[in-house]
Design a protein around this nucleic acid. Structure first.
Length: 720
DNA sequence: AGCACGCCGACT
DNA sequence: GTCGGCGTGCTC
């Protein structure tokens, strides 16, 4: 006798769906959220498949949970993500499934209105409540009490008396409906034609991926808002993905100006009831526009009609723990599956996206000018070989003068140094001992503010010792080289009367404090800002007219084949901070190598040439064309480190046909949250099924079970 | 992710 | 003797 069997995927690190018998009379469909017994407890899962079969000794599905079921496209997407990232299917599901928390009491909204009956005993407070309720409108209890100037107790008393009757009110919508025709911005001809192209893409049978490239200040946001408006007009949903930090009041205000309401936002700070209701609203299709961080890509949209990836070049789109993925790439795939166009917006597109444009995979729409005739900042180099800088100082006289001029005019200067802490290297003056990380052989960076030595590689922290750990000399430690904290010291000496602030990711206070500080800077509460790459991202500082790059050469010499590209993008973004307000901006770039292609391209503003050149350089170095570089991350527990390393080496030794390991395979690598990581750089010649190979390798390798995990990080273009 | 099971040290 | 520390492995 055959029975109905449900294959249920459970949001845990399990790679296969488990089979359960469906009890007679239980209506069940694929995608439904169900409760099932698992070992000794009950857990929630999603019906991934239904079939007939012998279900004799299977456990039974307990019940169907009242939660939005996952559509076929959503399930297809999650399957793809799991396959692509080599993550267990259950882990992929865990990213897309938010379950209602049964413990949370339902918030009841009770409305009250007059019934006509009068209370047995009248009091002044009751009189006021009745007077206030006389308008006949149904109001919340709390509101009515407030209006009458009494406590809620009085209102409750009148309800008991029968003078007021209660009405169950519908929940307030989680998000208001954006009006696509609320406040269309006046667009320039160039912007309008770009917007038209984006809007037209929504009508195509096979919607494209479009790279929207526009210099900072060219009005990209307003242009893609037109596509969002069109999606809303069509009754479909739109998702705007952005790096978490970019979800600022500034962005929300621009959205409200265009659509009349704030967008629903989704990020790690949205929790509890709000999160649940948003999730439900998105699944029902009631929420039309979501602006969110990368996790918003995994929500169960009812009818997703457009995805915008703002600042598509941002590395914050990469998730590096749990499931490893790049939200921009996953967005492209989700767009394909949902039949929705994807807009990748950036002033400094990633090299992968440019190559995809060149190969005809993505379309290209350009906004070449700053809106309102504003010009791009003028960029000049400061040749450090020719400048005389006092010992222990890092600002050249040229830069000091420029900062002086700038702040004197009431404008802001940004000093950019991509190095956290006080000094990148600490050594002992008497024995020359270098302070190194015990885990990963990187130098320990002094953080004077925190009075500690920190490994930027693995996070190891130790106190700054009083005496040298090697020779015992007292107070013999010398800081070598500058970090932002040290620059702040120098600035305080040079400009004692100016208001100065340091921004770096390790400052205490977290995102909240950072947002407040960014807002304070935008409001002109500081004269000189000293920052790491944190300041390169998305915030607008209208008073900033000068950007000084203290050491443009940082990052140019690392072994990573993407170093040049990354440095170019970073410097382009940072220098682009200048002159975004009324006044024109300029940038001074201190460098030892003014002729380096990255610096030359930055000064000339010729990004196209840089990318052509960079492509050529990589080809000459035997590196693959872009998009076929992958990193494999093998991780193992601390105890298993040696074994993990052996495994990484074994993988490197036997690449499948068409795959070559470029290294570095034997690098000691980082210890992150108790796990060692080994990163192998791999290139693929053709459309090799790297995932298939790795899965095969993992199952064949007898020691892969247990604590070793393998993740992959590769451009998905060849799988589309 | 839980939760059981099991193998070690230190307590009423 | 057994209580409980955590390391290991399984869950249809």
């Amino acid at each position: 006798m055959t029975a109905r069997i449900a294959d249920v995927l459970i949001p845990l690190a399990l790679d296969t769906a488990y089979s359960y018998a469906v009890p007679d009379g239980l209506a069940l469909e694929e995608g439904d959220v169900v409760q099932v017994p698992l070992a000794t407890r009950e857990v929630a899962g999603v019906v991934w498949g239904l079939r007939e079969g012998q279900g004799g000794n299977l456990k039974k599905v307990t019940e169907v949970i009242d939660a939005p079921s996952l559509s076929p496209t959503m399930r297809k997407f999650l399957d793809w993500v799991a396959w692509y990232t080599l993550a267990p299917k259950g882990s992929a599901l865990a990213m897309g499934l938010k379950l209602p928390d049964g413990d949370r009491p339902e918030v009841v909204r009770v409305g009250v209105k007059l019934s006509g009956a009068l209370p047995k005993r009248m009091t002044p407070a009751r009189q006021r409540v009745i007077a206030a309720a006389e308008s006949g409108l149904v109001r919340l209890k709390r509101e009515l009490a407030q209006e009458a100037g009494v406590s809620v107790g009085v209102v409750d008393g009148l309800i008991d008396e029968g003078t007021l009757e209660t009405v169950a009110l519908l929940q307030e919508p989680v998000a208001e409906r954006p009006d696509p025709d609320f406040g269309k911005a006046g667009l320039s001809d160039g912007q309008q034609s770009a917007a038209d192209t984006l809007v037209a893409a929504l009508a195509e049978e096979h919607p494209p991926v479009i790279l929207l490239e526009g210099v900072t200040g060219s009005g990209k946001t307003e242009v893609y808002f037109e596509a969002v408006a069109e999606a809303v007009r069509k009754g479909r949903q739109a998702l705007i993905l952005m790096p978490e930090i970019a979800l600022t009041a500034q962005f929300l205000d621009r959205f409200s100006a265009r659509f009349g309401v704030k967008p629903a936002t989704w990020h790690s700070g949205v929790t509890g009831r709000k999160r649940e209701r948003l999730y439900a609203g998105i699944a029902s299709g009631e929420v039309k526009v979501v602006a969110g961080a990368r996790s918003a890509l995994f929500l169960p949209y009812a009818d997703l009609g457009l995805i915008v990836v703002d600042e598509e070049h941002e590395t914050a789109y990469k998730q590096d723990d749990g499931v490893h993925y790049h939200a921009r790439d996953m967005a492209v795939v989700r767009g394909k599956i949902e039949n929705a166009p994807v807009i990748l917006a950036s002033a400094t597109p990633s090299i992968e996206s440019r190559v995809n444009v060149e190969r005809g995979r993505y379309r290209h729409v350009r906004l070449p000018e700053r809106f309102g005739g504003r010009s791009l900042p003028q960029i000049r180099t400061v040749d450090l070989r020719k400048e005389t800088i006092p010992k222990g100082r890092w600002l050249s006289p040229t830069l000091v003068t420029a900062v002086e001029q700038t702040v004197e005019q009431g404008e802001q200067a940004l000093l950019f140094l991509n190095r956290r802490g006080y000094a990148p290297l600490t050594l002992c003056r008497s024995c020359a001992h270098r302070y190194e990380c015990p885990n990963c052989s990187a130098w320990l960076v002094e953080h004077r503010f925190r009075r500690s030595l920190v490994c930027h590689h693995c996070g190891h922290v130790e106190r700054v010792p009083q005496a040298c750990v090697e020779c015992g000399s007292i107070d013999s430690l010398v800081p070598c080289g500058p970090g932002v904290e040290r620059i702040a010291e120098e600035v305080a000496e040079l400009f004692p009367d100016r208001r100065c602030i340091v921004l770096s990711s390790d400052m205490p206070g977290g995102t909240e404090r950072l947002r407040a500080e960014l807002a304070a800077i935008a409001a002109g509460q500081f004269d000189i800002v000293i920052g790491t790459q944190l300041v390169a991202k998305g915030h607008n500082f209208p008073l900033m007219t000068l950007v000084g790059v203290l050491d443009a050469d940082i990052g140019l010499t690392s072994g990573d084949p993407r170093a040049a590209e990354r440095t170019f993008q970073l410097l382009q973004q940072v220098t682009g901070r200048a002159g975004r307000g009324e006044k024109p901006g300029r940038a001074l770039v201190q460098t030892w190598q003014p002729d380096h292609p990255v610096i030359a391209a930055l000064v000339s503003g010729d990004a196209e040439r840089f990318y052509r050149e960079e492509t050529r350089v990589r080809e000459m170095a035997g590196l693959p064309p872009f998009g076929r570089l992958a990193s494999l991350i093998v991780s193992a527990t601390e105890r298993e480190a040696a074994e993990g390393h052996a495994r990484a080496m074994a993988l490197a030794a036997e690449p499948p046909p068409g795959v070559a390991v470029l290294g570095p395979a034997e690098a000691p690598l980082a210890l992150i949250r108790g796990r060692y990581r080994y990163r192998l750089l791999v290139k693929t010649e053709r459309e090799v099924d790297l995932q298939g190979y790795l899965r095969d390798w993992m199952t064949r390798c007898p020691k892969t079970r247990g604590n070793t995990r393998v993740a992959i990080d590769v451009d998905p273009q060849s799988f589309l």
